[in-house]
Design a protein around this nucleic acid. Structure first.
Lengths: 250, 250
DNA sequence: CGCAGACTTGAAAATACTCAATAAATGTGG
DNA sequence: CCACATTTATTGAGTATTTTCAAGTCTGCG
């Protein structure tokens, strides 16, 4: 079974087996993390880099006034924080939302790999570039969209990302997203999320299944409703660009 | 005189003269761009990569409903869009706010460098990682801060980034930021920006100088007012991490 | 001088927030 | 398996922030 990190990196382009092995070779150990536990904490030095093998986590930032903003949800294949490797203290926290299996990485070895192996550093570069795309999408969502479309948009993104990491692609979300989490993602209050979600439910776009799991009933329908660009996150490097560089498709 | 791109990359760590030369060697030509002109357009194929030598630009996204969200302002040393190199169509536009001097890059050659030279791809990786930090900050700003603090925060960031690129560091902003631009950055309306800016002016935190240029009167004072972490964007790779890897400081 | 673009200000309306009370779901120990 | 405690979700009413619309002002520039 392939690690979701390798799946992710290969989604952007070619990655040789040797490079993949070298990356996986940095794994110091696998660790099980319980929901609510933090993998890194804002203001603390970053001790280790990790990536997620299974489960969901969140990257979030707490403000002096007590409020919290979730910057991004982390799904299998997402890496903890590269910035932590070059900065002294974390500017945000990462906390497990479900039980998590993470691979912890030997940082010096990892840095050496990055600086010495162009195949690996460029693969990571493209991966970070995609992550940037996710953040940009989030900015647009929060900055210029109504509560209703924000929520629809986020759900669509999560459904898609879950599928990219090998999860179900039928509209189910495998995690119980509380109103508080959704609110802190979208810059709204839990109360307003509750109301907005009810609207989407009454409109027949979304359903709540056992154990509070959300399900998008018809992805295409919701996408139309939410002005959602279905090309988003379809970031395979297209063949004509690979050709330009004289290499075959991945 | 060093190119601001090289300055930027060296801010994160060591970059040999050979690597810098190789990067600069990709320059196909320098181009002067007039304010309002676009360097890339949402939905169009991305023809070329560029980076900014001088002037300000904005990265923005237009929505079906006619609204616009500015994702980030681009200052000297910022690169156009790496994602454009791997994706078929731009998911956002880049437009000049002032007169701009940009270096256009020979894309295939640049890609070859990235994939073949670990020093360059890792330098770009760290640079993109920092850019991600800017986007995260922006998400927090838009998601969880009041109009007043949003605005103060953005101004502080711009003052700082301007200084990092070699511009003045005394609180002056060398560009005329219209209310519309600020509004589309911060997810507010121009009208509300106008009111909020008046508040900051009445509080003696900000001033408007000749030709509509903004000036932060006392950076420390505004930072305190705005819950602004002054460690933000101080992303030199700290010595102890460099040591860990057995290399000297940059 | 007069025009065009950007800015300011006021009043009414919309969106989202707060507070508070109730209901539902989840987990725990007996 | 049930009763209880705890957490999470829903709903209502009043409030705050921001938006919208519209009219008026300022400024640079030909």
């Amino acid at each position: 079974m392939t690690s979701p990190l390798i799946m992710r990196l290969r989604h952007h382009g070619k990655l040789s087996d040797e490079a993949a092995d070298a990356l996986l070779g940095c794994r110091a150990r696998n660790r099980l993390v319980e929901p609510g536990q933090s993998l890194m904490q804002q203001g603390q030095p970053v001790k280790s880099l990790f990536w997620i093998e299974s489960g969901w986590a969140m990257r979030h930032r707490s403000l002096a006034c007590g409020r919290r903003q979730i910057l991004n949800l982390l799904l299998p294949g997402d890496t903890g924080d590269l910035q932590g490797l070059v900065d002294t203290r974390a500017d945000h926290s990462v906390t497990a939302m479900t039980q998590l299996m993470v691979s912890e990485v030997d940082a010096p070895r990892f840095l050496e790999l990055i600086e010495g192996n162009a195949e690996i550093s460029s693969a990571l570069l493209w991966s970070v570039v995609q992550e940037e795309g996710i953040l940009r999408e989030h900015i647009v969502r929060i900055g210029r969209r109504s509560a209703r479309i924000r929520l629809a948009h986020l759900l669509l993104e999560l459904v898609r990302r879950q599928a990219l990491g090998g999860g179900p692609s039928d509209g189910r979300l495998e995690t119980n997203l509380t109103r508080d989490v959704l609110a802190d993602c979208l810059g709204l209050t839990p109360v307003h999320i509750s109301r907005t979600l009810s609207e989407l439910r009454r409109a027949g776009l979304v359903r709540i299944e056992e154990r509070g799991r959300l399900r998008v009933i018809d992805i295409g329908e919701l996408a139309r409703h939410a002005d959602y660009d279905t090309r988003y996150l379809h970031l395979q490097r297209p063949a004509h660009i690979l050709d330009q560089r004289g290499r075959g498709a991945a």
